[in-house]
Design a protein around this nucleic acid. Structure first.
Lengths: 331, 331
DNA sequence: GCAGGTAGCGAAATCGTTTTCGGAAGTGCC
DNA sequence: GGCACTTCCGAAAACGATTTCGCTACCTGC
């Protein structure tokens, strides 16, 4: 049992109230006793019990973020987000913590929120779940969705510009002379996927090209999910000369699969990613991709949660952040 | 403000005690009222306030793990650890959470522990810090070190067999006929690095080879940290035919650097990694490495913390887990 | 000397649980 | 009817902090 506030009070023959006030900067404490209290607290290594303090104050100054499926992808994405998110939460006087979910209990997030373990929560795009969102809204619990636009004006979100990013990729590939361009999408019908697909289709149309359904294939978020779709594309009578992967991790699989078949990237087949994760540097050539402003996303997402904490009546906002094509060799 | 236990009590015209007992499975509650209470709790979406409960019970059923520097490496390693750690903590009725540290405050970990936010903590090897460990010991706060052996019999730790792993690598390379084998180490003088270096030296000696100081180079944990040392090795009058990298992420850099120079892996230079992270699959050829039993490490580390929680007098243990060489092409 | 003001401290309520203890019914047995 | 049990419930005391309010001195100015 660590030292408590009453321990200090006893030792100094003061009341707990005075000790608390000395520690919290109240003005009705003489500078002498304040000094005494601070010194004693330091000597005893005092740290206020977070449970007691949270209970009394009715808040925790903590913001949560939940980890669950598709660990490999999420974790890579997170490592890009975290610096910005941590910096911002620190500036707001909050702490950011990451919860590990056990996948067999989908309600864990709601339980943690209702138990008051955290004041607000950041929803990673991979656990879109309308029931969760609906309940959070009913509870009036502060939350922000990251990486996916939710078609509901009551929810705040921060998303990269998927449409523009895809257009940038396509314009580049078309400019290079590619005409048979394959597109890898994800099976979930989210606004992110729709925006990317729309960017692809619009770019083709703008170039006066007719789409070919065979060139649109599905991938998942899991490891090695790019291998099978690539083989599927290579097996076509007229295979693509460029492949637009759903994200960088898939692009890694694509490149490895192509190279394993003796094809050269980008000479034989150009490949592009999306997101701008560190994984893009682990292949040779490095992956040409659309760089999301990851740190900034982390920053904004925390800032928006914080805004809701400070101002109950704050109106929700949907932020779309600009992205940028970076050419690193694979296209 | 979410519904509290007293809300339920009021609505049902019962006392808070009875409601609490009904929810917590006490036997002195009639099955009728229990049913009533459970139903009301469900209807109102009741979730006990974690602050109140933690305060009263004097524990949190939470185990912490801290993230700080070298994010890219840590995060990759973590994604291997987490499934096992989460599974085990769930089996123990605990929750595992990850704290993000702001690097300018080294005492944050201690503060969180002393504030009683968590019952126990897992120390990632990358923040060895004798002051932290010493303080945790003084506080009698349960903790386990992961991935590094601490030369102090009072602290529990779980480590892969670095020595044996390195011997396995060396035996393989020597068996392939390599005679000039470079070794990348980390600057910190930890038992892990020492064990690896010793394995390297012993293997050379066992093969009757004299070591060459020029072949031992240093790397850091940060991104791209393998590039410079590789160039350093290539610049030698007599460059190595094999490079034993400190870990998989460095090996990625090494392979990319070699290939960028037109060298073939493994024909011109063989490369090995360590750890068995997913990153090893992102190069071509895939990285031959020493696979750590990551999930098992996660499992054991949580289990050991839990043991200390259940039995204050539990003796510390140092566990060394077996590792296995996996050949994937780069050597 | 006295009203009014200020500085410094403590008492006590409160946050929402858990848990011990005791008491009020009801039951069974002689 | 009296006794010992059992069954079920509530009162109340914690846990450790924060915060309001009131009280005592002392000071100030007239």
């Amino acid at each position: 049992m660590p030292t408590s506030l009453t321990d200090i009070a006893r030792q100094l023959e003061l009341s707990p109230s005075t000790v608390s006030k000395a520690l919290n900067g109240y003005r009705d404490v003489s500078s002498d006793t304040r000094e005494l209290v601070l010194r004693a607290a330091l000597d005893l290594g005092y740290q206020p019990s977070s449970a007691a303090r949270d209970l009394r104050r009715g808040r925790t100054d903590r913001i949560g973020l939940f980890l669950n499926t598709a660990l490999e992808y999420v974790v890579d994405y997170l490592s890009g987000i975290i610096p910005g998110a941590v910096r911002c939460s620190q500036a707001c006087g909050k702490r950011l913590l990451i919860y590990t979910l056990t996948d067999n209990d989908p309600d864990q997030l709601l339980q943690v929120c209702r138990a008051g373990e955290i004041d607000g929560v950041i929803l990673f795009s991979t656990h879109y779940d309308s029931h969760t969102i609906e309940t959070l809204l009913e509870d009036n619990f502060p939350f922000v969705v990251m990486g996916r636009h939710i078609p509901d004006e009551r929810v705040s979100c921060v998303v990269p510009d998927y449409y523009d990013g895809t257009r940038q990729i396509m314009d580049h590939l078309l400019g290079q002379g590619h005409r048979r361009i394959a597109f890898m999408t994800r099976p979930e019908l989210t606004t992110a996927n729709e925006a990317r697909l729309q960017g692809y289709l619009d770019a083709l149309a703008a170039a006066g090209l007719a789409g070919d359904g065979q060139l649109i294939v599905e991938t998942r978020l899991e490891a090695d999910s790019g291998v099978a779709p690539t083989r599927q594309l290579l097996a076509l009578a007229s295979p693509p000369t460029a492949i637009v992967a759903a994200h960088d991790l898939v692009a890694v699989d694509v490149i490895n699969t192509l190279q394993a078949d003796g094809l050269r990237v980008p000479q034989d087949v150009a490949v592009t990613g999306f997101d701008g994760l560190r994984a893009g540097f682990r292949t040779l050539p490095h992956i040409s991709t659309v760089q999301q402003p990851l740190e900034r996303i982390g920053e904004r997402v925390v800032a928006l949660v914080n805004r809701q904490l400070n101002d109950q009546a704050a109106l929700p906002v949907q932020e779309t952040l600009p992205v940028q094509l970076v050419l690193r060799g694979s296209a």
